[in-house]
């Protein structure tokens, strides 16, 4: 597979060229190796799943992608260029958004304010205008508010628009977090266990939203998930990690059949 070509998945979905490429990433914390020499890529428009048992280094991988951790070895390539060492906020500027395994909402703010925080980077009006909050500053605020309301509608959370997020139930908080990430209009959306702790119904809702986001906005998605049935249904390609090492990379059905993956999940007979 060369990096430029597009190809069609077994489900008949068209996947674009390579958007992000991880090359031989190694990440250590002191003596502990969290990620060891892992390479894989994420292509435009696909839904890419990262799976693996607990402690496999999945979340660390996402943290490397959005610049919260800096790997000791290896390179990250984004849209054909090697990414220099960057601060997380600079990477956010490049169009990478994420949600968190343990919800990281701004608890003192309402739903709509939380979603508005996703627009921070796009709001440009100067301090002076902000002080006066008239004219251009107000126009800008209203324009972004309108976009946020669209996303709020899209994710069906209008009824909690002005509630402080701290008091919302878990499932809704997850959805608000997704809304906030979407408000950033990301090119690449990282979802860290978007369905953890949800019941079947909530999972179905969330799956629907993820597919819709991918469909309607054409957003590339990389997600970590433990529920295999969800992963198999959603993902175009799956990469499987265990103890920081790469076990398999391929379509869901390929990975499912891979002996190393089966061993890692079910245990090996000795």
């Amino acid at each position: 597979m060369s990096t430029a070509e597009t190809f069609i998945t077994p489900d008949g979905r068209t996947i674009g060229a390579v958007m992000m490429e991880m090359k031989n990433i190694t990440l250590r914390f002191g003596g502990v190796v969290a990620i060891q020499d892992i390479s894989f890529d994420i292509r435009e428009g696909e839904i890419r799943a990262i799976i693996g048992p607990n402690g496999a280094g999945k979340s660390s991988m996402l943290n490397v992608i959005n610049g919260f951790y800096h790997p000791q070895e290896g390179e990250v390539w984004f849209r054909g260029a090697k990414r220099p060492s960057m601060k997380p906020y600079q990477i956010a500027k490049q169009g990478i958004a994420r949600t968190f395994q343990n919800i990281a909402l701004f608890k003192g703010m309402t739903t709509v304010e939380n979603v508005m925080t996703g627009r921070q980077l796009m709001m440009k009006k100067s301090f002076l205008w902000q002080m006066l909050r008239v004219g251009p500053a107000m126009t800008e605020e209203v324009e972004h508010r309108r976009r946020c309301e669209e996303i709020i509608d899209f994710l069906e959370i209008q009824h909690i628009r002005k509630e402080p997020v701290g008091s919302l139930p878990y499932g809704l908080q997850k959805r608000v977090e997704l809304a906030r990430a979407l408000a950033m209009e990301p090119k690449l959306l990282l979802l860290d266990e978007p369905m953890a702790g949800m019941n079947v119904e909530e999972k179905e809702d969330m799956s629907r939203f993820i597919l819709d986001v991918n469909d309607q906005y054409g957003t590339t998605i990389a997600l970590i998930e433990h529920d295999m049935s969800v992963v198999m249904d959603l993902a175009d390609r799956v990469v499987c990690l265990d103890y920081g090492k790469m076990l398999a990379d391929g379509t869901p059905s390929e990975v499912q059949k891979n002996q190393a993956v089966i061993d890692a999940y079910l245990g090996v007979e000795h």
Binding site: P88, Y89, A104, L105, G108, Q120, L121, Q130, R133, M184
Partner: peptide
Amino acid sequence: NLTRGRIGRSWMMIRDMDIAAELIGV
């Protein structure tokens, strides 16, 4: 005015969860 707009939100983001704020682009 400041606290209700972009700048105020960036302050509150830092207050509520500084790591998330940075990952979102503050």
